[in-house]
Amino acid sequence: MTPDVHGPTVDDHTRCIHYRTPLDIIAIRFACCGEYYPCHLCHEETADHPSRPWPEGSENVHAVLCGACRRELTIAEYTAVDACPRCAAPFNPGCAAHHPIYFG
């Protein structure tokens, strides 16, 4: 079963109103609520609580969803690749700037 992605998505590849380039195809499962959102701004605007990054030691948690093929990746898998291991869809390298927001 494919997880729901919350927030203002603009297409079926989890792009949102904030990040919608061809490479913006992942959603992040937030540690605070366990729900997927396309980005931290979507969470901030639509969740009823503040976000919280995944704590150290969470590398094996499935917390990233490829919007192209819907594969869930662990944090370790996601941070080690530039594209989805299943479908080879490239990920936005600029997302690394937000790493501390999501993964501590």
Rank of each mutant, 00 (worst) to 15 (best):
M1R: 12
M1V: 11
M1D: 15
M1W: 07
T2I: 00
P3S: 02
D4P: 05
D4L: 05
V5N: 02
T9E: 00
T9Y: 01
D11Q: 03
H13R: 09
T14W: 07
T14L: 14
I17T: 14
I17L: 08
Y19K: 02
L23T: 07
L23P: 06
L23V: 12
I26Y: 07
I26W: 08
A27V: 13
F30T: 09
A31W: 01
C32P: 00
G34L: 10
G34H: 06
G34F: 00
E35T: 04
Y36K: 02
Y36D: 04
Y37W: 06
Y37D: 01
P38F: 07
C39G: 05
H40K: 07
H40N: 08
L41M: 12
C42E: 08
H43T: 10
H43K: 01
H43E: 12
E44S: 13
T46D: 08
A47E: 11
D48I: 01
D48N: 13
H49I: 11
P50M: 06
P50I: 06
P50N: 09
S51I: 12
S51P: 09
P53L: 05
G57L: 03
S58P: 05
E59T: 03
E59M: 06
V61T: 02
V61C: 01
H62T: 14
H62E: 15
A63W: 07
A63E: 15
G67T: 04
R70L: 10
R70F: 06
R71L: 13
E72Q: 15
L73W: 01
A76C: 00
E77A: 09
Y78N: 14
A83F: 08
A83H: 12
R86H: 15
R86Q: 12
C87G: 10
C87S: 09
A88D: 12
P90W: 09
P90T: 15
N92T: 01
P93R: 08
G94C: 07
G94L: 13
A96F: 11
A96Y: 11
I101C: 07
F103M: 06
G104V: 03
